[in-house]
Structures are given as C-alpha cells and as structure tokens.
Amino acid sequence: MKKVLLLVFLFATAISFAQDKEKEYPQDKDKKHEVKVNVLTLVAGPWIDASYERLINEESSYGLSATYNTNTDESDLNYAITPYYRRYFSGKFARGFFVEGFGALFSARNYYGFSSNNEEFETGFALGVSVGGKFVSKKGFTTELLLGVGRNLVRDSNYEGFPRIGISVGYRF
C-alpha cells in the first residue's frame, strides 16, 4: 500500500510541475505599443531615427520607422520612411531574436557624371531583410540591436543598396 501511495504522490507532484506557467511580467500584460529612438544614428551620423512598434501577439509585430537627415552635406540620405514586420523566435513575449522584413520609401542624393555639380535627390523604394535582438526590462524599457540590408527597386542609381542598422532604446506601454 505504501508503494501505491508513493507512486500516486510522485505522479501528482509531476503533474503540478507540468502545469506551472512561465511568470508573467508587467511589460507583457496589456502592453502592446513601443516607441524607440535609434541612438547609433544620433551618435555616429547626422540622422534622427524614431520608431513605433505595435505588438500583435507574443511572436510578431509591425511598425514604422522614420529617419530624417539633419545635415545633407555629410550624408547622401535625405529621409526614409520604413514600415516593417517582425517575427520573434523566443519563448518570451515579443523579445529575443527576431527576423524582420521591411520596405523603405527614401530620398537620396544621386550623382550624375563625374562632377558633384550635377546632383539631385531621387526618391527610391527598397525591400529588405533584417535580423536583430530585443531586450525588455521588467519596467518596460527596451534595448534593440538591428542589422539589415535592402535593395532599391525603383531605378538604376548610385544608391542601389539600403542599409538598416541600429542600436535603439525605447519604452513599451
């Protein structure tokens, strides 16, 4: 009889551990919006890059990033509007490793000939892929690393590739 009771007790204990849920953190509960600023572009270049991201569920999100060049003498990119979709590959709510597909409507300087006198800004559209990682604190602050590249599909110009790079900080609310 003791052996039967011991087996029943061990079975009940195993079931109770199997039903134990992962802890829910405050940043996962009813928080579906994020705002971010790319600090890498602020420090390394003359761009202001801000993003909004809407969390669909624990595995995916979509968002919009807007980049503006504050000094067109230093860089060829004038502005960019980049919508994106992300797919997360971790067991936690919309964080960890992700793959992103994006489109970018941008304006960049195009040089004609060998002289810089014949320059003008052209509008282009690029499609691309990025990879990255997102880290979220218990208070909802986010840090994100991102690296990607896209290809200009509109016309043949000197600005054929479209880079997407960033180290962003933000807040989930």
Rank of each mutant, 00 (worst) to 15 (best):
L6V: 10
G96P: 01
V129W: 13
A18R: 15
G132I: 03
L55R: 09
Y111N: 07
G101D: 09
S116Q: 14
Y62E: 02
K31L: 10
P26W: 07
Y79M: 00
S60E: 08
T41H: 11
E122D: 10
D30W: 09
M1V: 06
T41S: 15
P83D: 05
G140A: 03
I48L: 15
F9L: 15
L147T: 11
V129Y: 14
T67P: 02
A80D: 00
L105C: 04
L42G: 01
R155A: 11
F162E: 01
S157M: 12
T142L: 07
K134V: 04
D76F: 02
G150C: 14
D49V: 02
F106K: 00
K29Q: 05
S65M: 03
N158K: 12
F98Y: 12
N38C: 06
L42F: 01
N152Y: 01
L10P: 14
E34P: 04
N78M: 01
K23R: 08
S90R: 03
K3E: 08
G170E: 01
P26Q: 08
F17D: 07
E120L: 08
Y111T: 09
S107A: 06
S75I: 03
Y68A: 00
Y84K: 13
G150K: 14
F102Q: 01
I81F: 10
R109W: 06
V169K: 09
Y88L: 05
N118C: 08
I81H: 04
